[in-house]
């Protein structure tokens, strides 16, 4: 009983650390995406760096952490830069489910993350296409694909690669890869 209590305290402390670290990380990334990159528009589009960070969390931490981060961050970026109906929590959560499967057999290293980014940007493009379809209420034209989706893919690919190292840095206070018990 005494040992269990000690273990519980350690787990709670670890959970608290996760919450704090991920809150700060996704707060900064959310603002970065919705204000900094939304203004700068590298390659003509705002990169989805939050999705990149969620991918890094899948790889470096676990899917459960990534799922919770996806819902919270999705809600946050919708609050900052979208008008309802906006689907970011749902899209990011589905991304976690799909990319989690893809990343199951990957080693938690940058090379694997770079490979994982390829299906990530394709998935992001698909979700962007569907979202624009819902919002525009018409099938997006080829010009939309060229002017919006392709630049977004490129921008996301380029700016998500460094995100891996930022998330890896955040793993230091959290500790080694493990599961959250909820």
């Amino acid at each position: 009983m005494k040992i269990r209590s000690f273990a519980d305290t350690g787990e709670k402390r670890m959970l608290l650390r996760r919450i704090i670290v991920y809150s700060i990380l996704f707060f900064i990334l959310g603002i970065g995406q919705c204000s900094f990159f939304a203004r700068l528009k590298p390659f003509g589009a705002t990169p989805n760096i939050v999705l990149g960070a969620v991918c890094a969390v899948i790889m470096l931490d676990n899917k459960k952490s990534a799922a919770i981060c996806a819902i919270a961050a999705g809600y946050f970026i919708d609050a900052l830069g979208a008008i309802p109906p906006s689907f970011s929590p749902l899209i990011l959560l589905l991304s976690v489910a799909i990319l989690g499967k893809v990343s199951d057999k990957m080693m938690p290293q940058f090379a694997s993350f770079s490979v994982l980014m390829l299906p990530t940007i394709v998935l992001n493009a698909v979700f962007t296409y569907i979202t624009s379809w819902i919002n525009l209420r018409t099938v997006p034209s080829s010009s939309t694909i060229i002017s919006v989706i392709l630049p977004e893919m490129l921008s996301t690919l380029v700016f998500c690669l460094p995100i891996y190292f930022i998330v890896k840095l955040c793993m230091i206070p959290i500790g080694e890869k493990g599961q959250i018990s909820l």
Binding site: A67, I68, A70, I71, G74, Y75, D78, P84, P85, S86, F87, P89, L90, L92, L93
Partner: peptide
């Protein structure tokens, strides 16, 4: 998580 996410999409909408 999916239910929460759907709720977070639907409630603001």
């Amino acid at each position: 998580c999916l239910i929460i996410a759907v709720a977070l999409v639907l409630v603001p909408a």
